[in-house]
Amino acid sequence: STAGKIFRAMYDYMAADADEVSFKDGDAIINVQAIDEGWMYGTVQRTGRTGMLPANYVEAI
């Protein structure tokens, strides 16, 4: 389960779609929910934006 875990971005990511979020390497991602194998839903702490993000760009900390 991803509940209550904080994730950290390992790479920069530029949102490719309106429902995705952009983030930079080192950003903390909070309130994360796993959607499926490849995608998560969460909030980028630095920007306050919430949306979909690729699971392979982040790691649990």
Score class of each variant (00 low, 15 high):
3 A>M: 12
24 K>V: 11
34 A>G: 11
18 A>M: 09
46 R>W: 03
30 I>M: 08
49 R>D: 05
24 K>A: 10
53 L>T: 02
45 Q>M: 10
11 Y>L: 09
28 A>I: 15
45 Q>E: 14
18 A>D: 15
27 D>G: 03
19 D>A: 09
34 A>I: 15
20 E>G: 08
21 V>N: 07
25 D>W: 10
51 G>A: 03
23 F>L: 07
27 D>H: 00
23 F>Q: 04
56 N>Q: 10
36 D>T: 13
61 I>G: 12
50 T>Q: 10
30 I>E: 04
16 A>Q: 12
39 W>S: 09
16 A>M: 14
29 I>G: 05
60 A>Q: 12
43 T>S: 04
54 P>M: 06
42 G>C: 03
39 W>C: 08
28 A>W: 12
47 T>L: 02
41 Y>R: 13
10 M>Q: 06
38 G>I: 12
43 T>N: 02
52 M>R: 15
54 P>R: 10
16 A>S: 13
33 Q>V: 11
29 I>D: 01
23 F>R: 01
25 D>G: 13
26 G>L: 04
41 Y>H: 11
46 R>L: 02
5 K>V: 14
26 G>T: 04
61 I>D: 12
23 F>G: 03
58 V>L: 11
14 M>K: 12
19 D>V: 04
23 F>Y: 01
30 I>G: 06
11 Y>A: 14
3 A>T: 13
14 M>A: 14
46 R>C: 01
39 W>F: 07
43 T>L: 04
7 F>M: 06
21 V>S: 03
10 M>H: 05
26 G>V: 02
58 V>W: 01
21 V>I: 09
29 I>M: 03
17 D>Q: 10
20 E>K: 11
42 G>W: 02
3 A>W: 07
59 E>S: 12
33 Q>A: 11
47 T>E: 05
11 Y>E: 07
57 Y>A: 14
21 V>F: 15
35 I>E: 06
47 T>M: 05
13 Y>G: 05
27 D>A: 02
14 M>I: 10
58 V>C: 09
27 D>P: 01
12 D>R: 01
32 V>S: 07
10 M>I: 11
60 A>T: 12
48 G>S: 02
36 D>Y: 07
61 I>Q: 14
57 Y>G: 05
44 V>K: 04
35 I>L: 14
21 V>E: 04
17 D>C: 06
6 I>P: 04
58 V>T: 00
9 A>R: 00
15 A>C: 06
25 D>T: 15
32 V>A: 12
5 K>M: 15
19 D>S: 14
58 V>F: 03
9 A>F: 00
57 Y>N: 03
44 V>F: 03
24 K>S: 10
5 K>P: 12
10 M>V: 09
13 Y>D: 10
42 G>S: 00
31 N>G: 11
36 D>G: 12
45 Q>Y: 09
14 M>T: 15
20 E>A: 05
21 V>K: 05
34 A>Q: 15
3 A>K: 11
56 N>Y: 01
59 E>M: 06
40 M>C: 11
40 M>S: 04
20 E>P: 03
9 A>P: 03
40 M>R: 02
42 G>Y: 06
6 I>F: 11
19 D>M: 07
15 A>V: 02
36 D>F: 10
15 A>Y: 09
4 G>M: 09
17 D>S: 14
18 A>K: 12
22 S>V: 02
54 P>S: 04
60 A>P: 15
37 E>G: 08
17 D>T: 05
6 I>A: 09
38 G>S: 14
59 E>C: 07
29 I>F: 03
23 F>H: 02
11 Y>D: 12
40 M>G: 04
6 I>C: 13
13 Y>W: 03
55 A>H: 01
5 K>W: 11
56 N>C: 09
31 N>V: 04
61 I>V: 15
6 I>R: 10
60 A>K: 10
26 G>W: 01
20 E>Q: 14
17 D>K: 13
41 Y>N: 10
20 E>T: 05
44 V>I: 10
19 D>G: 13
49 R>E: 15
1 S>W: 11
17 D>V: 04
22 S>T: 13
23 F>A: 04
41 Y>A: 05
3 A>F: 12
9 A>E: 02
58 V>G: 05
35 I>Q: 07
51 G>S: 00
37 E>I: 11
11 Y>I: 05
6 I>G: 07
54 P>W: 02
61 I>S: 12
18 A>P: 09
22 S>E: 02
45 Q>R: 11
26 G>Q: 02
11 Y>R: 15
55 A>R: 11
24 K>N: 11
41 Y>L: 13
13 Y>R: 05
56 N>I: 03
57 Y>S: 10
55 A>T: 07
1 S>K: 13
30 I>Y: 10
1 S>A: 15
53 L>Y: 05
37 E>R: 11
19 D>Q: 14
33 Q>G: 06
48 G>R: 07
37 E>V: 12
46 R>Q: 05
40 M>A: 06
33 Q>D: 07
37 E>A: 10
6 I>T: 15
29 I>A: 03
27 D>R: 00
13 Y>C: 02
37 E>L: 04
17 D>R: 12
4 G>I: 08
49 R>F: 14
17 D>Y: 06
13 Y>E: 01
56 N>V: 05
41 Y>E: 09
31 N>S: 10
5 K>A: 11
22 S>Q: 00
55 A>N: 09
28 A>Y: 09
36 D>H: 10
37 E>P: 12
41 Y>V: 11
47 T>A: 02
4 G>N: 11
31 N>H: 00
49 R>V: 09
52 M>S: 02
57 Y>P: 05
47 T>G: 02
38 G>R: 14
59 E>R: 12
54 P>G: 03
43 T>G: 05
57 Y>R: 10
3 A>E: 14
11 Y>V: 10
30 I>Q: 09
31 N>T: 01
10 M>R: 13
16 A>E: 13
58 V>P: 06
61 I>P: 09
33 Q>W: 07
35 I>G: 08
35 I>T: 09
24 K>Q: 13
6 I>S: 08
24 K>W: 05
57 Y>F: 11
53 L>R: 01
50 T>M: 09
10 M>G: 01
6 I>V: 14
12 D>V: 00
9 A>D: 00
13 Y>Q: 05
26 G>C: 00
33 Q>C: 07
16 A>P: 06
42 G>T: 01
7 F>R: 07
13 Y>F: 00
4 G>L: 07
53 L>Q: 02
3 A>D: 10
4 G>A: 07
31 N>P: 06
9 A>G: 04
61 I>M: 13
56 N>P: 08
61 I>A: 13
54 P>F: 00
27 D>Q: 02
46 R>E: 05
55 A>C: 10
28 A>T: 15
15 A>E: 01
42 G>L: 00
56 N>A: 14
30 I>P: 05
39 W>K: 14
10 M>P: 00
19 D>P: 01
21 V>Q: 04
39 W>G: 07
26 G>E: 01
35 I>N: 04
34 A>M: 13
48 G>E: 07
49 R>L: 14
28 A>P: 07
7 F>L: 06
55 A>F: 02
45 Q>V: 14
56 N>G: 10
16 A>N: 06
49 R>G: 07
41 Y>K: 14
49 R>K: 14
34 A>F: 10
59 E>H: 14
47 T>H: 00
14 M>D: 13
44 V>L: 03
49 R>A: 14
24 K>E: 08
60 A>L: 12
23 F>E: 03
21 V>C: 03
33 Q>K: 15
25 D>L: 15
